[in-house]
Write a protein that binds this DNA or RNA. Structure first.
Length: 596
DNA sequence: GTAGGGTTAG
């Protein structure tokens, strides 16, 4: 058989794929043909050549040759990994039709496919079918189902299955817990994740690098890289080494905070440890640069990536296109778009949506619709996000009527508007002063069972406070708290803005300190609002005190801050004011220098 | 297991 393997491998390498037809036509005796065909199939699965796998599989079953179930399982695994669940289902059905008896591996692979697709119901149906066929679930079956449930956020059910598995005497492992911990961390539910880690320990399941990466990811997402790093010594103590994913996660954490310098330090550190940066590493850093206004460094990083032997992928280009639109450089965005096509890369759903959002931001509705047609032609029908991009884009272009029509079309297309859709529409109504209508829409949103987020509440608070409807703004604020949604700095700014505008300075100061006792630091917007309010009242001293305070806290003022400070000054005071500011700034710098 | 698309403030 070894020599047969060698021969078939040569045949494939010589591109003599038509050997399949020869074999199927029965030139050899059936048993020999079948063996060789199986060998071919195996080699195609090793090459991850889905097309040819399916082609041989199909030829075989339709000509009375039954492929080895192990090869069928290999095909199912490839289809699962490529997300081709529909094809996997077809193969599975053909297996049944032609009498290839599924093994536990077949079932587990299919269950995993369904779970990855988010179709837990179908997974459970298959579980019943499997048991009906006398195949008993094993620990992998349990872990797979737990994985599927976790992905959907059905945590209670997932935990129930763990209990179930334990009851049945199965051993639980990191595979059982990692998926749940990952999902908890991804959703910011760190307390739950930590609790599960304790349970894991209690049951004797050892955490893996993946477990720790999940935690680091959870902390990084919340902007807490230092907390994330505290896991490193714990890992090392257990003889677990940081892998490239760990580094990518930490790099991502620093990039989120805008600290690309620290991200680059990690990049050189991982290289020193003989880890190879991946496309993810480069893309993450590029996105960090781009989001913090340094598109030029992002572009240079793309060249660096190529020099280091990694080809830019669709992520890379999406990041660069987003950055180009962000800086209003439509020409550059187009250049990257054409580069994608030129390199033979395919735009995916996200790349298209980015382009559409960019065109809308620049006001080119026509270009946006054209891209959507192109998307449709490539069999990416609009999803809820595409619609949201259009709805919000059209709102921002000032055509609320058209946006509402689009909302109707969306529903007709069978896409259910979500909290973002409603927040955009509500925001648009608020912007033009239709507060009542906005409140109605908010009610409609609630009645559809959609959960408002901090953004929804913040736009409502902002508009109501800004129009002097402070009592309503406070109602929204407390409603939000009651629903367990935490206000952020923008929410507080919206409230403080209304209070300042309607000269309730005492209350504004109360909220200003309350936000800080709740652990939310004022930013340059907060200070600008407060400075503006004081300047309007002629409290020049207080405005300057605030200005100094923000500098002391390392918060950079911008032109809005300055125009708020200057707005009531007559021209002849201007030069005095500039002097005064300069002395503050100089004073601040000296302090900073004294520290460093 | 890690990276890219949608909603908020002066």
């Amino acid at each position: 058989m070894r020599s047969a393997y060698w021969v078939v491998e040569r045949v494939i390498n010589l591109n003599m794929h038509s050997i399949v037809d020869v074999l199927v036509d029965g030139y050899l005796n059936n048993e020999a043909s079948c063996k060789v065909l199986d060998l071919l199939l195996w080699l195609y699965t090793k090459k991850l050549d889905v097309e040819r796998c399916l082609w041989v599989f199909d030829k075989m079953v339709k000509n009375g040759f039954l492929p080895d179930v192990k090869n069928c399982n290999r095909i199912l695994r490839i289809l699962r990994d490529k997300g081709l669940v529909g094809k996997a289902r077809e193969v599975y059905e053909l297996m049944g039709q032609f009498g290839i008896k599924p093994t536990i591996v077949t079932y587990n692979t299919m269950l995993d496919s369904f779970g990855k697709e988010g179709n837990v119901q179908q997974a459970f149906n298959l579980l019943l079918e499997m048991q009906g066929n006398g195949c008993r679930p094993n620990d992998v079956t349990f872990n797979t189902l737990i994985n599927g449930l976790s992905k959907k956020g059905e945590f209670e059910e997932a935990r129930g299955l763990i209990a179930n598995a334990l009851n049945k005497g199965f051993k639980v492992s990191a595979y059982t817990y990692n998926s749940l911990i990952c999902e908890y961390c991804r959703r910011g539910m760190l307390v739950e994740a930590l609790g599960l880690k304790e349970e894991m320990k209690m049951r004797g399941a050892l955490p893996t690098v993946l477990t720790y990466n999940a935690f680091m990811h959870g902390y990084c997402k919340q902007g807490r890289v230092s907390s994330a790093r505290q896991w490193i010594p714990i890992m090392l103590k257990k003889n677990l080494m940081l892998d490239i994913v760990s580094y990518n996660i930490l790099i991502y954490g620093y990039c989120l905070l805008g600290d690309t310098r620290e991200a680059l330090i990690l990049l050189s550190e991982l290289k020193k440890r003989n880890l190879k940066p991946s496309a993810v590493t480069y893309n993450t850093i590029m996105d960090g640069f781009s989001r913090h206004g340094d598109l030029e460094s992002a572009r240079q990083f793309k060249d660096k990536m190529i020099k280091d032997g990694i080809s830019p992928d669709i992520f890379t280009y999406t990041i660069l296109i987003n950055g180009s639109y962000r800086t209003g450089n439509i020409w550059l965005a187009k250049k990257f778009y054409h580069e994608i096509l030129h390199k033979g890369l395919q735009l995916d759903r996200i790349a298209y949506t980015s382009c559409i959002a960019g065109e809308l931001k620049l006001g080119d509705l026509y270009a946006a619709f054209k891209l959507q047609e192109e998307m449709l032609a490539k069999e990416f029908p609009a999803d809820v996000i595409t619609y949201n991009v259009f709805v919000d884009g059209i709102c921002k272009l000032g055509d609320l009527e058209e946006a509402c029509e689009l909302l109707q079309k969306m529903i007709q297309d069978g896409i259910v508007p979500d909290h973002v859709t409603y927040t955009s529409i509500i925001h648009a109504h608020l912007e033009i002063g239709y507060l009542r209508k906005a409140r109605e829409l908010f009610g409609e949103m609630l009645s559809k069972g959609l959960s408002p987020t901090v953004v929804t509440y913040t736009v409502l608070i902002h508009a109501h406070a800004g129009e002097g409807r402070l009592e309503l703004a406070f109602i929204y604020f407390s409603e939000m708290m009651e629903n367990g949604i935490l206000p952020n700095v923008i929410t507080y700014n919206a409230l403080i803005n209304g209070l300042c505008k309607f000269i309730k300075m005492d209350e504004a100061y109360r909220w200003f300190s309350q936000m800080q006792s709740n652990g939310i630091l004022p930013n340059k917007y907060t200070y600008t609002i407060m400075i503006n309010g004081n300047c309007d009242l002629g409290n020049w001293e207080e405005a300057l005190r605030l200005y100094k305070e923000m500098l002391d806290r390392g918060i950079q003022p911008d032109s809005c801050t300055h125009s708020a400070l200057f707005k009531h000054l007559r021209k002849d005071y201007m030069s005095f004011a500039v002097q005064e500011l300069e002395s503050i700034i100089l004073d601040g710098r000296e302090k900073a220098e004294a520290i460093t």
